[in-house]
């Protein structure tokens, strides 16, 4: 990683109740990277994502764009982290364009009917990138799962934050939409964003990520380029599976194959 670190955590620990969910996580991540965060169920992936965004109280230090997270006001944090939670929950049947416009909320655009030209342009870019322009007046509750995931993605892209955190954005999507979502995130990373995506799909992680973080029982088991971080030994230790590996078009293919 030659570029300057945009997000750094050192000795990050999170305790929920009496249970230590994360302990002593240190990492340094740069912009223009797509980082896949993988690990078995309950390893603490979502907790790590929330802690990085400052949505959970944590110990240790987090720095984003050179500033300690604790020194930033809520709105400034919201401008630096775009956060896409699991499930794409929307409680009211709002029109798609209003949902996407919520991505500009951190920038002071609180009313989707009165966006400035700058905010409207950001919303339009996000909707074009995810191909939801045609859906803009539809109610989000009327959409299919795939369409909803694109709208949710448009909302986080519209923030145009330096760091984008996405929690299992490909869960319960068909293969085409999974690839579409990952391609969109890849494009965002290529355009300068640090994208951290939680996924259970080791294949997608290996295919699209520059860096893989493997979380096991609240600790970082490995981090690095996919082929190294997801080595045969680590996957066997952490996930208890053997993998099938191959190279195709100079990319590493990793497919979980059998129980270890």
């Amino acid at each position: 990683m030659s570029e300057a670190a945009i997000l750094a955590a050192s000795s990050l620990s999170v305790n929920l109740g009496n249970r230590g969910v994360l302990s002593d996580i240190s990492l340094t991540l740069s912009s223009k990277h797509l980082v896949a965060l993988v690990g078995p169920n309950g390893a603490g992936k979502t907790t790590l994502l929330r802690a990085l965004a400052g949505l959970l109280p944590s110990e240790g230090t987090i720095e984003v764009c050179g500033d300690p997270l604790t020194s930033l006001a809520l709105q400034e944090r919201a401008r630096r982290f775009a956060y896409l939670p699991q499930g794409h929950q929307v409680h009211w049947p709002l029109p798609v364009k209003d949902i996407v416009a919520l991505g500009r909320y951190p920038h002071g655009a609180v009313d989707p009917a009165r966006l400035t030209a700058k905010d409207a342009a950001a919303v339009m870019r996000a909707m074009q990138a995810t191909d939801v322009v045609a859906l803009s007046d539809r109610r989000v509750t009327e959409l299919s799962g795939g369409e909803r995931s694109r709208v949710a993605l448009a909302r986080v892209l519209a923030v145009e934050a330096p760091v984008l955190l996405a929690d299992e954005p490909t869960a319960s999507l068909d293969p085409r939409y999974q690839i579409e979502v990952m391609t969109n995130l890849r494009t965002a990373a290529d355009n300068g964003t640090l994208v951290i995506v939680v996924t259970h799909d080791l294949g997608l992680a290996a295919r699209f990520a520059d860096t893989v973080l493997v979380l096991s029982d609240g600790c970082l088991a490995s981090q690095g380029p996919p082929a190294d971080a997801l080595s045969e030994k680590i996957v066997a230790d952490v996930f208890r599976v053997r993998t099938y590996r191959a190279d195709y078009e100079r990319e590493t293919i990793i497919v979980p194959w059998a129980e270890a």
Binding site: R50, A53, L55, L74, Q75, R77, A78, R79, F81, A82, Y83, P85, Q89, V90, H91, W92, L94, D98, I99, L102, G103, Y105, P106, V110, D111, P112, R155
Partner: peptide, 20 residues
């Protein structure tokens, strides 16, 4: 009033958008 719209996406997401 405007915070209620952000809250449509759930409390955690609203928080991530800067709503206390």
């Amino acid at each position: 009033r405007h915070a209620f719209r952000a809250l449509s996406l759930g409390e955690e997401t609203a928080q991530s958008l800067g709503v206390n």
